[in-house]
Design a protein around this nucleic acid. Structure first.
Lengths: 288, 288
DNA sequence: GCAACCCTTTGACTAAAGTCAAAGAAATAT
DNA sequence: ATATTTCTTTGACTTTAGTCAAAGGGTTGC
């Protein structure tokens, strides 16, 4: 990697944090300590203490006391979780929401102030540059790992996949339509900061041929180029297991998927199975 | 201004600070408190306590003690300012420089780690996006103000202008070649975070015609589009004072300047004076 | 039914970060 | 030359941020 990229990123980081640090909760939380302001923001529409602890990376005792302090100021209400009474739920009171709204107004005002030295055209370019940078940084932070088919993350992804197809396919899609776990040779899950945001399964059709199934990216993580990364990783896994060819099928409503397969070197072939949800079948030769 | 720009900038800020906050001194200063790590960085090649205080926005007592602590650890050496013995100068010792270098190595390592999930092409796009964003943010932070011709900032800019021309013109350029201050009707100075980074002067040739002179941007602030902004501001000032036409001249070695004038609506005209440093003369009609 | 584990609270700390005011030494203004 | 201002140091604080361990209810697995 060229040193230039590293230097540029570091220079930008220095400049940005110094310059835009102004947008930070610090200046927004008025007379409130930074920790409390952040906590208020993170509680937002309500969250369990457990969630808050991991999101903010705080010590349990420390968090407990801070929540108590906000409660004392009438900004937060704490209740017991309805089904698991070990958990506590924090939510903002009317006053808490008002303070959060004020915090947002200030942040908006500051951001506006930063932008109003620019022409509308320049603002557009800034917005675009920043969007591209964010997308690439997010992508850089995603890791793909093979996981156990029965792990919670695997099940969550497959459930998300099934739920989405059920909504998008005119004929619907049932959980029973998923490949049985024992037929999955490799299940890859994409993690964005420890959160599972996509998956893809590899099944062996025969020694020569593998099938890619259930390739899915969480809606929050679309547009990053993750689908293609999962696809490439699955192909590598197939090659590593000695397969020479990968196949896959797709439903006609999934236009973007078909387009991605084509641009990734897949060619359409006749139906190789009787999948009721498939409209197109594709194949890619990995090893000749 | 559309709310979208504000939202995008705020979202990016949130994401970036959370994600890249890792690059922050916090993680770099090893077991060192954040304040000390930042101070070490800020001292860099040496600075007065006064400077450090304003740069870091610290309380005088607090800073004094921190510097003392770093001195105690053998990382910093403090001496009395040669000409003003109220001031103290801090500079890094050999050990201090070594620690700063280590800090830099770590930051580089972290930045590399962030980038290595990306392909070389994606890294290139990230670098570019970040460069554009930085340039625009810097530009947004620049303010143009009319200042007194004899103010320190004005003199510093004009001196910078003269020094640069002296270097670039084959025939040289002397401070005496500058317009006498009393002939300057308006002197605009561009400030980037309170630092003067460019200037431009407006002189009245007659009631109808004004002349723009000494348009200059500090090398550190080039590439932001500041020259054009100063030019536009000068034209507005000329129009505001009732002039209908602005003229200016330029030397043949200043290719970029001539190009900018042309793309800003200036057309070449015959020499209107006998300026020894001019090769081209331009004019722009503001009011017909 | 009980052991093992989870989540939260409480007590008892420590370290870092920051504030304020007084005072001393040096420079500058009058 | 004297008063005023500037810069730094020192003492005496406070607040914020965070850690660690013990303990007490709840839940889950066997």
């Amino acid at each position: 990697m060229s040193a230039e990229h590293v230097t540029t990123l570091r220079r930008f980081n220095r400049y940005f944090t110094r310059r835009i640090g102004v947008l930070d909760d610090h200046y927004l939380g008025q007379d409130r300590p930074l920790g409390e302001a952040r906590l208020l923001f993170e509680i937002g529409t309500g969250a369990s203490l457990k969630e808050l602890r991991t999101r903010l990376g705080l010590d349990a005792g420390y968090l407990s006391r801070m929540v108590r302090a906000l409660e004392g100021q009438g900004l937060v209400r704490v209740s017991v979780h309805p089904t698991d009474s070990r958990l506590r739920l924090a939510e903002l009171t009317e006053a808490g929401r008002a303070e959060l709204a004020e915090q947002n107004r200030r942040a908006d005002g500051l951001a506006k102030g930063l932008l109003d030295g620019l022409s509308e055209e320049q603002r557009g370019r800034l917005t675009e540059a920043v969007t591209v940078a964010e997308r690439l940084l997010r992508l850089a932070g995603v890791g793909i790992r093979a996981v156990d088919t029965r792990s919670a993350d695997a099940r969550a992804c497959l459930a998300g996949f099934a739920a989405e197809l059920d909504e998008r396919f005119p004929e619907g899609y049932a959980t029973a339509d998923l490949v049985p776990p024992e037929q999955i040779a490799v299940l890859l899950v994409a993690y964005e900061e420890e959160r599972a945001v996509g998956c893809g399964a590899l099944c062996a059709l025969d020694a020569r041929t593998a099938e890619i199934r259930h390739l899915w990216v969480h809606p929050d993580a679309r547009g990053l180029g993750l689908g293609r990364r999962l696809l490439t990783a699955l192909e590598r896994a197939a090659a590593g297991r000695g397969h020479h060819v990968v196949r896959l099928d797709t439903h006609e409503v999934l236009k973007e998927a078909a387009a991605m397969y084509r641009t990734s070197g897949y060619v359409e072939i006749p139906a190789y199975d009787a999948n009721a949800h498939a409209s197109y079948w594709f194949e890619k030769v990995l090893v000749r």
